[in-house]
Amino acid sequence: MNAARIGMRRGWIEFKQTLTTPQDVFAMIFPSAILLTVMVFMKGSTIGNTGFSLGAATLPSSLGMSVAFAGMTTVMQQLAVEREDGTLLRAKATPNGMLTYLIGKIASVSMGAVLGVLLLLIPGAFLFDGLELGSVGAWVTLAWVLAFGLVASLPIGAVLGSLFSNPRSVGVMMLPIMGLVAISGIFYPLAEADAWMRDIAQVFPIYWLGLGMRSALLPDNLAAVEIGGSWRHLETIGVLGVWAIVGIVVAPIVLRRMARRESGSAMTERREKAMQRIT
Rank of each mutant, 00 (worst) to 15 (best):
S110C: 05
F204I: 08
S135K: 07
G97I: 06
F187L: 10
I183A: 02
A56P: 04
G185S: 04
A3S: 15
P189K: 13
I248A: 01
D24M: 13
F164P: 00
G171S: 02
L133I: 15
S45N: 15
P205G: 04
G64K: 01
L240M: 05
L190T: 05
L218C: 08
S263E: 03
A201M: 01
G11I: 04
L131D: 12
L131W: 15
A244G: 04
N221Q: 09
M8P: 00
Y101A: 10
V225N: 12
S66A: 14
L127W: 14
E272M: 15
M213Q: 13
A3P: 09
I248Q: 00
I29C: 07
I206D: 03
A56H: 07
S32G: 01
G51V: 10
F15H: 06
I6N: 10
V159W: 05
T236Q: 00
G134N: 05
M76Q: 09
V40A: 11
L120K: 11
Q202G: 14
A4I: 12
E192T: 14
G112V: 08
A91L: 09
G124Y: 11
A138F: 01
V254N: 11
P167S: 07
R168I: 13
A125S: 13
R168F: 14
W12D: 04
P60M: 07
M72R: 10
G161I: 02
L89K: 06
G112K: 11
A91G: 09
L146E: 08
L154N: 06
L115N: 03
N96F: 07
L163E: 03
S61K: 03
T58S: 15
L133M: 14
V246D: 02
G97L: 00
V81H: 11
L180R: 07
L102N: 01
P95N: 03
Q17L: 10
T18E: 14
I156R: 08
T50G: 12
T268G: 09
L175F: 14
M76D: 00
A4D: 11
L133H: 12
A251I: 04
A152M: 08
P155W: 01
M173V: 12
I47N: 01
R256V: 13
E82I: 03
Q276V: 10
S162Q: 06
G71W: 02
G44C: 05
L234G: 07
L255I: 14
L240R: 07
L163Y: 12
A93H: 08
R271P: 00
V117A: 05
E269M: 15
K16A: 15
V250I: 00
V25L: 14
G264R: 08
G104Y: 12
A113T: 04
G185N: 12
G134W: 06
L211V: 13
L19K: 15
S110R: 06
A195Q: 15
L142I: 02
L59A: 07
K273L: 14
I278S: 12
F126Y: 11
E226K: 07
S169V: 06
A33H: 02
Q202E: 14
L79E: 08
A93G: 12
G161A: 09
G264K: 03
G149K: 05
Y188V: 01
E262W: 01
A251R: 02
I29T: 04
V159F: 03
V140D: 13
